[in-house]
Amino acid sequence: MTAVRSFLKGNGLSLGFGALFLATLVGQALAGVAEFNDQRVSEGLAGVSLARYVTSSSFAVDVMENWQSEYLQFFLYVYATVWLVQRGSPESKELHRVGTETDQEQRVHEHSGEDSPTWARTGGLRTAVFSRSLGLLMGGIFLLTWAGMSVAGWSAFNAEQLAGHEDPVSWLGYLAHPDFWSRTFQNWQSEMLAVGSMAIFAVYLRQRGSPESKPVGAAHADTGQTG
């Protein structure tokens, strides 16, 4: 097997979803500019080019509102699954392991192995940070993209205000406007539904070969198994 094929096989999940992300982003841009121009023509305004649309706040807010909710989902899921369990779900750990677990179970400090990351072995602040790094990163990206959504949404909202011959609003005014919270909650609710339903569906249903599922023959009551 060549080095390239080996690399592709070893990184198929990242590369596959990266390609799907780019393809669907292009699809969103093409459909979005058509919808945007339909709306503008109906208001007696000129349409815009694809290049101008993809650098517009309208496109940016539509992208950002989805990104922020996805990272909120992962952030909450990473943190919630430390403390909340679901009997029989491969998305959950076993019921008696609720909490941050012992150093031995987590293989930190003197319980770390030779293959453990350096920051898991050193102790102190570095181990404390590394022990929470996944949640911190997800939470950080969520906050950044949510802030990005608020700025892009503010700009898109004000463009709509001007197109409708109304005064623009301040950023704080936009944060208090239903448009901001409608965009926020409509995305959050779908993420919570997806996570909650996945956790419970995976108790009783199987997908052979997927690590998101239990082995097909595993009992419904088995918790924390993947296969």
């Binding site: 990184n11 999940l13 990242s14 990266g18 496109f59 940016a60 992208v63 950002m64 990104w67 992962f74 899921y77 491969p90 998305e91 996944l134 990163l137 990206i141 950044l144 993209t145 990005g148 700025v151 892009a152 996570v195 996945m198 690590p211 998101e212 993947t226």
Partner: peptide
């Protein structure tokens, strides 16, 4: 969901760059 890839940091940096670019 349980299986975040090892190349996550690079993808996160790319997403953050795109986000910053859009806002700018």
């Amino acid at each position: 969901m349980a299986s975040a890839g090892s190349g996550f940091s690079g993808r996160a940096a790319l997403l953050l760059t795109l986000a910053a670019g859009l806002v700018a």
